[in-house]
Each structure stands twice: as structure tokens, then as C-alpha cells.
């Protein structure tokens, strides 16, 4: 464990806590704030804050992430939360494409879907039961079921399977809002 790694860890930890504290800010403000503080830290380190002690002192002077975010929310009446956190985006991606990873990825997506507060229970059921295994489902049908349907029937079938999955994913994407899991 050398000195630089300890300093890096301090900075990573600080920026992670700042990003977390800034989550309730509207996206534009959050990006700008985190960007400016990140640049500040980089400039300070380029100017010679190298050791763990120096970095720690520099971060102390900056103040705690909570204090900085509190200053950014000053006078902000409506605190809008980001609709999709990275874990919610991961849930949608895994529901769509996770089936290709030995089906396991899709189950991980289902777990993320049900533990998120961004969707209502009904939307969670829709996301789970309609088109299970996402885009892998048509692939599964093609591989394991005898598909000797006439082509005039097969094409609309594909369009329904793939279009249906896309429709559900975009429905979940559009409806995602903080705190909706309490609704039915």
C-alpha cells in the first residue's frame, strides 16, 4: 500500500459521497457541481497536494459533501430527484439483454426491478411476466421450438415479440419516478 494509493482512495471516497449527496439535485446542477469539485481536487493535487495528509487537509478545507450540497440546495424550492439511478438503468438493460447471459442476467434484472422504488407494483409485474428473458426469448423460441410456421405468420410474430419487449422497456423507462413503489 503506497502513499499515492491512500490519497487516491480518499479522493475517490470523497467524490462518491459527493455524488450520493448530490442525487436530489436536478441533473444539470448535479453534473456541474460534481464536475467543478472534481476539477478543484485535480488542480490542488497538480499543485502539490500529494501525500495522504495533504489530500486529507485539502478535502477538509473543501468541507463535507453534505455541506456543499446544502449550499447548492439553498433557495431551491422543488428538489427533483433523478428519475433513473444507475441501478435502475441496469435493471432495464438486464431485463432486455440479461437473458443472453445464461438467463442469469435476466434474473438479476428482476431482482433490481423489484427492489427499486422507481416503479409501481403493477409495472413490476408487467416487466417481469410479459416477455420474460427479454430479447433472448425470441432467440429461445427460434432455437428450441419447431418453427415451421408459414412465413406470412412468422414475420408478424417476430415483430410482436421484439416490438413488445421494446414497448415494455420504454414504458418502464418513461414511468420511472422516485418513490413510486408505494403505489399499487
Amino acid at each position: 500500500m503506497n502513499v499515492k494509493n491512500d490519497a487516491d482512495r480518499l479522493v475517490d471516497d470523497y467524490l462518491r459521497r459527493l455524488a450520493e449527496a448530490a442525487e436530489p439535485l436536478p441533473e444539470g446542477r448535479r453534473t456541474e457541481l460534481v464536475g467543478e469539485v472534481t476539477a478543484h481536487i485535480a488542480e490542488a493535487r497538480a499543485e502539490g497536494a500529494e501525500s495522504e495528509g495533504e489530500v486529507r487537509e485539502m478535502l477538509t478545507r473543501l468541507g463535507s459533501p453534505a455541506e456543499i450540497v446544502a449550499a447548492a440546495t439553498d433557495g431551491l424550492v422543488l428538489v427533483e430527484q433523478s428519475r433513473l439511478r444507475s441501478r435502475d438503468g441496469a435493471a432495464l438493460l438486464l431485463l432486455m439483454f440479461g437473458g443472453f447471459f445464461f438467463l442469469f442476467g435476466w434474473f438479476a434484472g428482476v431482482v433490481l426491478l423489484w427492489t427499486s422504488d422507481r416503479w409501481t407494483t403493477r409495472e413490476k409485474w408487467v416487466g417481469t411476466l410479459l416477455w420474460p428473458f427479454g430479447y433472448a426469448f425470441p432467440g429461445f423460441l427460434l432455437t428450441y421450438l419447431p418453427m415451421d410456421m408459414p412465413s406470412w405468420l412468422a414475420w408478424p410474430g417476430w415483430i410482436v415479440l421484439i416490438g413488445g419487449q421494446t414497448a415494455i422497456a420504454s414504458l418502464l423507462f418513461q414511468n420511472a419516478r422516485p418513490g413510486r413503489s408505494t403505489a399499487g
Binding site: 446542477r29 456541474e32 457541481l33 467543478e36 469539485v37 478543484h40 478545507r61 473543501l62 468541507g63 463535507s64 459533501p65 455541506e67 456543499i68 450540497v69 449550499a71 447548492a72 439553498d74 433557495g75
Partner: peptide, 23 residues
């Protein structure tokens, strides 16, 4: 921020200057 930080007693938490600048 560095310049303000060097003035005695003016800034207690340097990081809060960034939200101020944004405002």
C-alpha cells in the same frame, strides 16, 4: 477559491463557493 481561502476569516468551507458560482 484559493484566493478567497487566503483571505482571513472569509471562507470556512471552500467547496461551497462552487454552488455560489453556479447561482
Amino acid at each position: 477559491v484559493k484566493e478567497l481561502g487566503e483571505v482571513d476569516g472569509l471562507v470556512t468551507t471552500e467547496g461551497t463557493i462552487y454552488p455560489l458560482l453556479a447561482r
